[in-house]
Structure formats: structure tokens, C-alpha cells
């Protein structure tokens, strides 16, 4: 079981933003999507989720998907604005909006509550989402995405507003669920150390093209960081085989700012 992307090309009104992207992503693995601001990470994820028109095909289990992805693909957007007076529990329940009835199935409510508990959010279940901090809201929306139990999980910078402990917790949970449910997971991340530690593979996007993919040690090289990010950085081996990326200074030959 796998997700295959072939010759994907996505653009907005005038300019093409993602060029000819192809990839094959195996079930049960987490792929980290890295790349500078404006390199097209969000655009690529939205296109795969069926939220943007695109050229090329997205194939799940040898079945080419139509415009409506049929609820198989969950996409967690980058921004976390919510303007509704809803509780956290209701927010999570909405993950399965297509199956909810006027009378809530108690088993479903239980399921949603357990998802919250898995993320350590049990005590927030009855709070209004609007009253949460940015980080808490990000966790709740992640819970919503996990509650869908999708075949393909696309997370757009899910740790952007989180503290160290929660970054760790979220990415560990995502990885555990990915292998337990044989999900195809792609996470856009800015923190390269986190990407190296928590993803099975890295995919590096630069100006809308994939310039490298594979294991962290092969993707994260000093030359590549210089070419893609325009940064001179030290890459150091840490404990337990983790990699640390220490940016030293910006170099002149950087990419255009995005």
C-alpha cells in the first residue's frame, strides 16, 4: 500500500509554484517535507489533498484519485484560526463530519475523548477552542486530524507553535500512529533536527522542485544547506544517532527570499 505522486504541477493565477514533482510514499512511514519559506511545501500538500487544482496524478493503492479525495486524505492546514464558539470535544468530533448524525453516537464521543487523551489534552475537552493558546489550538486541530484515522495524513508545520516537550510528544505520537495504522504521513517541518529525528525519510523542496530525498544523513549535508537555504551550517552527530543542525551565518548565494 502506498501513495504515488506523479508529474505533479501546481500553480496560482499566473505563476507555477510546484514543478513536476514525483514521489512514492510507503504506508507506515513518516516523510518530512523540508525547504525554505515559499519553496512550495504548503502548495504541494494542498494539491495532494485535493484542495488545489493541479496537473499530474495522485495514486493511492494503484487507484488514481479524482478531484474529491473521498475523505481518504486528511490535511492539517498551517494556520489555526477558528472563529466558532465550539468546545474542544466538538472540534475533534468534526474530524468525522461526514459520518456525524443529529444524535451523537456515544461510542464516537468516547473515541474522540480518547484521541484527546492520547495527546494529553483531556483536561481541555470542555474548553472553548477560541479561548486556547495558539499551541493548544494546534494540538486540538491535530487531534481532529488524527481522529479521522485517514489513510493519508498531511501535516503542515504542526509543531510551529509548540514548546519543546509538545513538539516531541506530537511527532512521537504521529509516528506511532503512522506505523500502527499503516498511514502514509507527510509532515512539513522547518526544524531540521526534528525532521531528522522523527521522520523515516526527508524530502527537500527548493523553488518548487524536489532537490533531494532519502535518509536524513544523505539529505542534510553542509553543501545542500548552503545551496537550498543559503546558510553556512554545522551538522553534528548527537546522542542516539540524532543530528543537530547549527546555523552559523547566511551566505551571499542564498535563494530568493520567499
Amino acid at each position: 500500500m502506498s501513495l504515488a505522486i506523479a508529474a505533479l504541477q501546481v500553480g496560482y493565477a499566473r505563476q507555477v509554484v510546484v514543478h513536476d514533482v514525483g514521489a512514492k510514499l510507503a504506508a507506515g512511514t513518516v516523510t518530512a517535507l523540508i525547504g525554505p519559506n515559499g519553496s512550495g511545501k504548503s502548495t504541494l500538500l494542498k494539491a495532494v489533498a485535493g484542495l488545489l487544482p493541479h496537473r499530474g496524478t495522485v495514486t493511492l493503492d494503484d487507484r488514481v484519485m479524482g478531484r474529491d479525495r473521498g475523505g481518504a486524505i486528511a490535511y492539517l492546514p498551517q494556520d489555526t484560526g477558528v472563529r466558532a464558539a465550539l468546545t474542544v470535544l466538538e472540534t475533534v468530533l468534526l474530524g468525522r463530519v461526514r459520518t456525524l448524525g443529529l444524535r451523537l453516537d456515544p461510542a464516537l464521543v468516547d473515541d474522540a475523548a480518547r484521541t484527546l487523551e492520547g495527546l494529553g489534552l483531556a483536561s481541555l475537552a470542555d474548553r472553548a477552542v477560541g479561548s486556547l493558546s495558539g499551541g493548544q489550538r494546534q494540538m486540538v486541530l491535530l487531534a481532529q486530524a488524527l481522529f479521522r484515522a485517514p489513510r493519508v495524513l498531511l501535516l503542515d508545520e504542526p509543531t510551529a507553535a509548540l514548546d519543546l516537550r509538545h513538539q516531541l510528544q506530537v511527532l512521537e505520537l504521529v509516528r506511532a500512529q503512522t506505523s500502527a495504522r499503516a498511514t502514509v504521513t507527510v509532515v512539513a517541518l522547518h526544524d531540521l533536527g526534528l525532521a531528522a529525528r522523527h521522520a523515516d525519510r526527508l524530502m527537500c523542496l527548493s523553488a518548487g522542485r524536489i532537490v533531494a530525498e532519502g535518509a536524513a544523513s544523505s539529505v542534510l549535508t553542509e553543501e545542500r544547506l548552503r545551496a537550498v537555504y543559503g546558510v553556512e551550517a554545522d551538522i553534528v552527530a548527537a546522542r542516539e544517532g540524532a543530528l543537530g543542525v547549527i546555523p552559523l551565518r547566511a551566505v551571499a548565494t542564498g535563494p530568493r527570499p520567499g
Partner: peptide
């Protein structure tokens, strides 16, 4: 966007 990504 989020509603659409929920399949609506």
C-alpha cells in the same frame, strides 16, 4: 480550507 479538507 479546513472545512474542505474535512471533506465538505
Amino acid at each position: 480550507e479546513r472545512a474542505r479538507s474535512l471533506g465538505i
